[in-house]
Write a protein that binds this DNA or RNA. Structure first.
Lengths: 344, 344
DNA sequence: CAACACTACACAATCGTTTGCATAAGATCA
DNA sequence: TGATCTTATGCAAACGATTGTGTAGTGTTG
């Protein structure tokens, strides 16, 4: 049976100090390996701390230091492959530097995103890393961070209008261009396009790149075959049904994410459309599912680990050197690559 | 060009108090809607706070209140479907209650898990939710939480030995049993088994259930067809190659996760083995990939959302009512269901 | 040996919020 | 009108770690 503890509040450095007959300041310095403390005392302090079961109180030291060692993060959803990989890579890197990540999901809702920004702001995160919700076009909820000079980095889905923050994004224009070129090169002349909403930077740029590629090849896009919507499997099916309802049918589809591309493959299978002979499909993100379905789907790899590594570096630089925060905000673009598989 | 701010420290309640000619205590009470403050003052305070751009300092209040409103979480990896869904559901629920989640990944490493536990312990999280790393059999790193009466809940991968904490797990025994029964009922007589290591509660119980089912049907398991290892695709391929290297071949495989089951499907395709005629395959977790591959894989659904909802409820109860922490630790078991698809 | 430097520590203020207790002013009642 | 109660607010002490400044005691140098 466990004794019910008499709610004795926890061991603090003061308790250690008293037990050792030294001052709390000495204990604090000893625990932090401050060179002003003698080796002997440092050892005694650490042993006593261990013995008493002392645990550091990061609230107190955060308050005093005005740094929480916590980095806030807002992503649409962690279940998206790209973000899951990104987060893991970022977290591993930041862990080494002594930072913890507070990961929040906006569920692609702008209002949730606003609330989260405000909560993280109050929580005194040392920095904020954000990938925007699908329809966020107003960035006021991030202004507090820039005003207080708290490092703010957007990645992947970044503000479309000028906004004062660091940006690290994939080369979505090029991704769209690669996809378009690839469809053209593989002989498509009548292409359909299922994109995310243009409020979101990545879809906007992919669209521009894609259109540019088609334009170069003198391919005109049928407006009826273009969709700009949330890229769920269900939406994809609806659009596909519309596209293939008419007599004239496309011979190529660019889907702006792999969920949609996968839906297209399944739709084609259901309809008895031959891939890639009758229809070529290209997706985006290199989601593992794209390589599992048959036929495996051609897609664009965004290199989430590389992106995370750049975000981590930028973050660490900004956190280490306050003076960097004054200078101009930077923008980095991470290359993308086409992964050709069996749907093209 | 932005003006370089004169590093004026941020607005605190003291500043608001001075601006209004009241005391800081009054400001604090007003902001917290304490009924002891008149409506008029409350309004003035809130307006002034807004005007000055005040933001609550949760470090200070956490220190004073001895509660951080942060719940720690340690999971093997967020990229695992089950955990991603679980986390999202849990987070949505806790957000409503005013808690933030600090999500950490052990990457299935016991030593990282230990470090994370210690960090979260120092960070003064109000509670800890854990799904254990693959080979964790020693739970000392969680003892601090139980000693300090900090709510500690294990889910899915839980301690196998007696350990003083709340447990909410899937019915893995039943999952194994269902899988075994299903293979038996669909006519398998020679089955292979690819499991995770038995150090991990879920695999241990699935194994027991599975063996029980086979035993009932008088099916003897060939030891050479049983593997207990980390369930990566690569390991799966190696095991499959071993299993199918000999003349005598199995007619059924139970894979203890879907990654392995998917590998089996691909392996069979490569080898020209007919599914489900020559070989039946059943996986575990109902990962979306299982329904995408062809043929889609029969699997066991663990109902992550239901599990998250139970964990959330338990958490909230424990956080709200300290007295509950004294009473016995509870164990809940979330049902599993067989999802039959085309591999059986 | 005086002047100075250095080592190793202590003192006390500080970070911003919260809260038990005290208190002043006004209201109520006998 | 004095006693008691309410209401609205102020005072000051926490919470625990950190750090600039002060100061013994010892060592060094010319």
């Amino acid at each position: 049976m466990r004794q019910h503890k008499p709610e004795k509040s926890e061991i603090s450095i003061v308790d250690i100090a008293e037990a050792l007959g030294v001052s709390a300041a000495t204990v604090s310095r000893a625990l932090n390996d401050n060179p002003r403390i003698s080796e002997a005392t440092r050892k005694r302090v650490k042993e006593k701390a261990e013995e008493l079961g002392y645990r550091h109180n990061s609230m107190a030291s955060s308050l005093r230091n005005k740094r929480s060692n916590i980095i806030g993060m807002i992503v649409p959803r962690i279940s998206m492959y790209f973000h899951a990989i990104f987060i893991t890579a970022l977290q591993n890197r930041l862990q080494d530097e002594g930072y913890s990540l507070m990961i929040c999901q906006s569920n692609d809702s702008e209002s949730i995103e606003q609330k989260l920004a405000s909560t993280l702001y109050s929580s005194r995160v040392d920095a904020l890393v954000v990938s925007l919700a699908l329809y966020t076009e107003n960035y006021k909820h991030f202004e507090g961070f820039t005003k207080q000079n708290i490092p703010l980095i957007f990645y992947d889905r970044v503000p479309t209008k000028d906004f004062d923050a660091h940006i690290i994004k994939g080369d979505d224009y090029r991704g769209g261009l690669l996809a378009g070129n690839h469809l053209v090169e593989t002989g498509c002349t009548k292409v359909a396009y299922i994109s995310g909403p243009l409020s979101c930077s990545i879809y906007k740029e992919r669209t521009e790149g894609f259109f540019h590629a088609l334009g170069k090849a003198n391919i005109k896009l049928n407006k009826k075959w273009c969709f700009y919507q949330e890229l769920t499997a269900e939406n994809a099916w609806n659009s596909l049904r519309q596209i293939f309802a008419e007599k004239d049918k496309p011979d190529g589809i660019f889907a702006s994410n792999d969920t949609t591309a996968l839906a297209a493959v399944e739709f084609a299978r259901e309809q008895g459309i031959k891939i890639p002979d009758d229809l070529k499909i290209i997706g985006y993100s290199n989601d593992p599912r794209a390589s599992i379905i048959s036929p495996p789907v051609t897609t664009i790899d965004q290199h989430p680990v590389e992106m995370a590594s750049r975000v981590a570096q930028k973050l660490i630089d900004l956190l280490k050197d306050r003076s960097l925060r004054a200078i101009n905000h930077t923008q980095e673009i991470v290359p993308v690559t086409l992964v050709r598989r069996m749907t093209t």
